[in-house]
Design a protein around this nucleic acid. Structure first.
Lengths: 172, 172
DNA sequence: AATAAGGTTGCGTGTATCAACTAACGTGGT
DNA sequence: ACCACGTTAGTTGATACACGCAACCTTATT
């Protein structure tokens, strides 16, 4: 197991992981719930899930389907489907990559940016609301730690086990 | 918008929320991926999702379906279904509530605890691995902040909007 | 031409929600 | 006491959505 190269005892480390694991599950559930409650699904039928694509496109600029998939940790097929939806709704534009006829450069349209901006505003309002009572410093810290955690997970990918991963149950 | 009663400017606050929102999505996606990779689905057909129930049962003791649903932020029907599965696999026991013939007190069986323990061990190993390089203090801080965030979200439930919630797209 | 690489689409699975249904509790009237 | 009524707890069926795999088409590359 992970040898701690800092002061903690392995036991304390495990206990903390345990507690953290709990927070993680709780967190995921909460986000999911929150998501489906407001987002429901685009008033125009835009899938909630597709918004992550819009985000990436705006955040990192026009990209290929494959790059999006990688960045979002999804399947290319999933991205493709969601992109199609976004394109149909005029939020994203499919421009053939000049360097490669097979590739599709996806880019957010002006309307896409507008819609996204609006959503972002909402999200930020919500988040800011939740965090309103927090000291500036804590908010910053949470952000930093979460980032680090994410990176850590990404690098640690091979293994896994999230919250309550199955194991053998020998009984019937 | 949320008025900050601490030093930060509203703009900084929004930017931070923005960034945090990004980490959140990233995080959820990562966990989801990790989950489905290992967990797959119980070797015996136990649904991955059902493990959260097992967790609650062990963490908080025997409970009714409705209580579980509330705690897990799920529908009663969902819990019911998943519980049935757990019962079939002998990980959970359904004992009629003596105080109410309609109610079902769910409780983890010994086998259920065993299986859960094993899974927890795995998860903790994984998490500990991810966090191995972290200073003890940071791990603790993350845990605390996440807890606070979760609680904040729970209290803030009415509103919502997590990452990229839809809004009108007026275009076609 | 042959092979590889980029995407799209059909199909199946997992998971969750809504709605209809059953069973049990509790109240009030007779 | 007894029975009808509405209420509450939970189960089950139908349905929707999102994701992943795999087969397929198209364009590059050699």
């Amino acid at each position: 197991m992970a040898s701690t190269r800092n002061g903690a005892t392995p036991q304390a480390e495990l206990d903390l992981a345990d507690e953290l694991g709990y927070q993680l599950v709780r967190f995921v559930r909460l986000l999911h719930k929150a998501k489906s409650q407001v987002a429901k699904q685009g008033p125009d039928g835009i899938e909630r899930a597709a918004y992550a694509i819009l985000f990436s496109l705006i955040h990192d600029g026009p990209q290929r389907t494959s790059k999006l998939a990688e960045g979002l940790h999804s399947e290319i097929s999933t991205i493709s489907r969601q992109s199609s939806s976004l394109v149909q709704h005029g939020l994203v534009e499919r421009q053939a990559d000049p360097e490669d006829g097979r590739a599709c450069l996806l880019a957010a349209t002006a309307e896409g940016e507008r819609v996204f901006e609006e959503n972002r505003k909402q999200r930020n309002l919500w988040l800011a609301g939740v965090l309103a009572e927090w000291p500036e410093e804590d908010r910053h810290t949470l952000n930093t730690l979460l980032d680090r955690l994410n990176t850590g997970i990404e690098e640690h990918s091979p293994q896994i086990a999230d919250d309550h991963s199955p194991v053998q149950a020998k009984g019937a």
